[in-house]
Amino acid sequence: MSIHRRTRPAASVYAEKAIEVVIHLCGYSAILFIIAIFGFIGREGIGFLSTHIVGMFTQTSWNPTHDPADFGILALLAGTFWCVGLSLLISVPIGLGSAVYLSEFAPERTREILKIVVELLAAIPSVVWGFIGVMIVNPMLQALGAQVGLNGLNGAIVLALMTLPLLVSLGEDALRAVPDSYRQAATAMGATRWEMVWRVLMPAARRGLLVAVLLGVGRAVGETMAVLMATGNSVRIPTSVYDPVRTLTATIAAELGEAVRGGEHYQALFGLGVILFIITFFVNLIAEWTLRGNRST
């Protein structure tokens, strides 16, 4: 018996090849972009970092336009981590709590509606969150006794609200990925719903939940507009939640416009960009490692 195979027209074969090539390029473009971005920031910033790195971590003040200029970034780093840390204290309990509610307690209809609302929350532009910080959180904090309503706590509250959607939706995914057989086992042993969540689901989903938190951290570290508006923009190492602070991101956004292109100040801001990039890169890397560990077990 012979097999008759119709040959395809050459044009169709080439079209197929072309599509394949385009798809490959799309796939690799992400790598290309990341290299290009790092190259761009690095070109402007690395030179500055290599000459000023010691001063950045030993000088206490950030006065890039003074003569001589001070490029101490400790206060900026402190501002960033202060805001992010405080925001986690707010967002992690609320975010994981609502993830648990959505995944384990909410009736199907409620769950669907809430998920849509949470996703809407994620769609609110950064600058609108800044407005909320200025117009709503600001007077509230003043009413609670803060001298200045625009401060680290305000920034943290705004950041927490901004990272909540990510935490909720990734946290919920992590919990729902836990096999039902665990739920059945725990239920059949007489666990209440809460005992099941606490003793079985949380440990089972711990890696996924940690990844959710880490990606939230990455998001919070890089957030700019809202913190610029809400934190009060005062470069200092905070000692109280009511102290105004300034973050790395806000510094770049606020000062880049007035820095002389190519000048020392300009390069210093790109140096901050490199540091920011390194921080978020490591946070994401840790998240990725955590996720991989999850797959291997």
Partner: peptide, 29 residues
Amino acid sequence: LRRDVGMVFQRPNPLPLSIRENVLFGVRL
């Protein structure tokens, strides 16, 4: 009731805990 009436499932479903904690899970509850 469930404490008095245990159940074993079709696919073995130990909890994602250590061997010790699996055995003592009911006691802990």
